[in-house]
Design a protein around this nucleic acid. Sequence first.
DNA 1: CAGTATTGATTGGCTGGCCAAGGAATGGGT
DNA 2: ACCCATTCCTTGGCCAGCCAATCAATACTG
Lengths: 168, 168
Amino acid sequence: MTTAEPACTADQLPSAARGGPVGMTLARAARAHRIAMGRRLRELGLYPGQELMMMVLWDCGAVRQSELIHSLGLDPSTVTKMLQRLEQCGLVLRRPDPSDRRAVLVETTEEGRALRGGVERAWSDLEESSLAGIGPDDRAELARLLDLVADNLREEAEEAGDCPPLNC
Amino acid sequence: MTTAEPACTADQLPSAARGGPVGMTLARAARAHRIAMGRRLRELGLYPGQELMMMVLWDCGAVRQSELIHSLGLDPSTVTKMLQRLEQCGLVLRRPDPSDRRAVLVETTEEGRALRGGVERAWSDLEESSLAGIGPDDRAELARLLDLVADNLREEAEEAGDCPPLNC
DNA sequence: CAGTATTGATTGGCTGGCCAAGGAATGGGT
DNA sequence: ACCCATTCCTTGGCCAGCCAATCAATACTG
């Protein structure tokens, strides 16, 4: 034993998570994924999370802030602050909605649009890197199962209160 | 069309993520998972992330802080601040390591140990909820594929610098 | 038409988490 | 014995993201 003794069962599944091994694996993989994405985004001058907001703006043109909130599933205050920073960086432009003086319209600037290629490349590149050695069938299976999980959790979330008055 | 027009392709995969659909699905599922876990943890007085630290402490007894850092894969400063808060909540106890005056030994208090059952139940419960309708074979397959992804990403992370001097 | 409810957005405060920089204590090399 | 590199931890600053409370503008209802 030349290695300093691990002092306990380090690096393995914590025993308190034995009842949720898949969830733990999901959390681990997603964290690594987010970190790897963060590495790529840093070279573009973005922080993790911001690229998702930019994606919506690239797709939608001028959007109401409430649309962003709903589309990203984030807290309104989170969106406000992210937009303030993105605006200060010159990536985004905000102006009052003439048809509703409460609302704010958001759109990307030219500088913001310039990042699109880099972000798309980052996502493709990370996809290839993270799925290396996994065949197309397994990839599809993974996506299918993750979607099922997301559906289950979305159902639970709706029961838990954040149910927008769509069906109730 | 009674619903307010979506203004664009809301709620679908952002077009900039077409190159990484699995990664996007992974991120979505993991976010929902973390939020669902957060709901359960709030009833225990914990924030998401803290339960993982407690798990290590429950398993290991008194641990050096550096062990925690390595075991959780977090930044040292993150661990320091989390421990300061957990200590102030009375869930954790810190004392200097007599054999190395730089180091700090961390262990749970009785009050901290009392949360173990609740956290285990929360994980089991979330596992069942998130995997509802998914058979044992598919669960195993999901775990296997997620582990592959995590392995790929860990490899990439090591190449990217955070390689602890284990093999080099 | 007046009064109330709902929606849109902001602020403040809190946590998780990162990076960069710094200060102690230990260990290794000459 | 001395100096230097390494290890262990802390601080400060920043961003994502949440909740609670708040204000302004619109919509709804009696």
